[in-house]
Write a protein that binds this DNA or RNA. Structure first.
Lengths: 147, 147
DNA sequence: CGTAAACCCGACAAAAAAGGTCGGGATTTT
DNA sequence: AAAATCCCGACCTTTTTTGTCGGGTTTACG
């Protein structure tokens, strides 16, 4: 149960851009300080662009910049751009999916849906500016369930 | 961002056992109704046993059974047994891990820690009996963030 | 206008992980 | 002893991940 480097690098790149927000386009070389494979990062930035999270300026002096304010970009969007939508079981995401072993009354289905919803909500609550400000609050609702 | 079949099959198997809880050992063949590759499932059940989640009885009339009551087994334990611990970035799980690109003040680290904690808590709250009873309540703390 | 600095893009490839299969061994009941 | 089971490691195939590479396109600037 781990995140791929795509997701990690993608978030690192976005955090980098958030820090430089307002300072004009950041060239690929500028990302050098992150110590990530440059050619690979270029690909990832392409995905982020196609997902509408970054804008690019071509030509000399060009580079990448956030398409929106850091407080309007969530971790959910970034990870989804890099790794596709969160999906615990195909039968949940894709409606025309096979039997999932126990069609009809599959008892696991509820779990997948629940988890997908909760985790997406969680990821959707965290923005780039929250990260810069280390503003990651624990929602104080964790109702104790210890029998 | 998807779960592997290991995680899925593992949970399916555990739900199956939870349903038959109290009915004695369930042989591998009994799992047949789940329509999963038998030889593969056998492997997975081995992992579940080694993780202490199922007990086995060998010999004729043998099979697998839950090692504890369904309300004492969480989805977290099951998924961890199948896929290893949740880990967004190595630097969080493993303390002697390399630079993670921006050692020192890595701003992403807080996110990984936060997410790991939240998701583990979430998964740890769901038990097999919750699943059988479709008792997946939304913790009513989801503070709306829609600006 | 020419050149250099950038991004853009598709093809390729090595390595790792996923997803199984197989054969035989060990245990236990009957 | 035979049959039903689990146990285990070795092996294999396919897919995904994690990149690399080469060349094309766009644009600022002198």
């Amino acid at each position: 149960m781990k995140l791929s480097t795509k997701g990690k690098y993608g978030l690192y790149a976005m955090i980098f851009l958030a820090r430089r927000h307002g300072e004009g386009p950041q060239s690929l070389k500028a990302f050098g300080e992150l110590n990530l494979p440059e050619a690979y990062l270029e690909q990832l930035l392409g995905s982020l662009r196609r997902a509408g999270l970054v804008n690019t300026v071509r030509g000399t002096q060009g580079g990448y910049l956030l398409s929106r304010e850091p407080e309007k970009i969530t971790v959910k969007e970034i990870l989804e751009a890099m790794e596709g939508p969160l999906c615990f079981a195909d039968c949940v995401a894709d409606s025309d999916q096979p039997p999932c072993a126990h069609s009809g009354d599959c008892p696991a289905r509820g779990v997948w849906e629940y988890l997908t919803g909760e985790i997406n909500a969680l990821l959707g609550r965290i923005t780039l500016s929250d990260i810069l400000n280390q503003n990651l609050h624990h929602p104080e609702n964790v109702t104790e369930e210890t029998t």
